[in-house]
Amino acid sequence: MKYFLYGGCSLEAGGKNYMVSLEPVCKALGMEFEEIEDWNCCGASISYAGANELSIMTLNARNIAIAESTGGYDIVAPCSSCYIQLVKTNHELKEDAELRNKINVILKEGNLNFKGSLNVRHLMDVLYNDGGIDKIKSTAVRPLKGLKVAGYVGCQTVRPYGEYDSVERPKVHDLLLKAIGADPVPFPKKMQCCGSGIFLTELDRCLGLVKEILDDAIANGAQLISTVCPMCALNLEMYQDKVNAKFGTNFNMPVVYLTQLMAVAFGMDLKKEAALDYCVIPPEGIIKAAIGG
């Protein structure tokens, strides 16, 4: 199966380990990616401070329109922040003819046109529905037996339309973890927002959110946290020091991308493909113990 991949800005930098691991994992599941040509930033959650709704929509409409002009595949967004921007734009433009006309007036400035012919999907959707649990199970030659993982879904991953999983009680992340042999722990805060785009600017308030999430993971016996969003990964991993400083806690919880765990389970190289060394809080020890290495 072929897809457009919209990696977005983060996957080239802070979320590099996501990009490094998802490519071989998806390839192993028979997926092929084509990058959207000359893509631009999705605007993420924070652009509203600098631009109106229509401008942010324009960013996403441009990316979709470029994809439409070059091929007929679904657009896959691994970053939840990119996903929600793209899927929202795609959905609203498909539903609302008046809005679509407006956007096309704008896109015309760059000789582009939004037709509404493509679907936008999250990577997790594609892994689950196109890759499939069975295929993942059979590819997982090195299952992560007994590895207790808190499958953090994050808020934007399944919202706002719940196209492939519940917006309130999602299951897909845990099912994928199970498929690679890991043991997803109950994790009531799996949907609690980590602070996302206002993390940096509302640090004091958002550290509390991260603390609650980490507390919940630990209380439920998780050894590490799995995510599918670079923003979540960043906030949950990189700010543990600050949380510790603020709350006098002692968190040192590895945070990895689901695709990193999958790469491990698929028998791939722990560094080159699973990119475990990209993690600031090292997960290797725990993961090696699980795969018996």
Binding site: S45, I46, I84, C155, Q156, R159, P160, G162, V167, E168, M191, C193, C194, G195, S196, G197, I198, C206, L209
Partner: peptide, 8 residues
Amino acid sequence: TSCYRCKV
């Protein structure tokens, strides 16, 4: 924080 919970 743009978590969308209010919207959904």
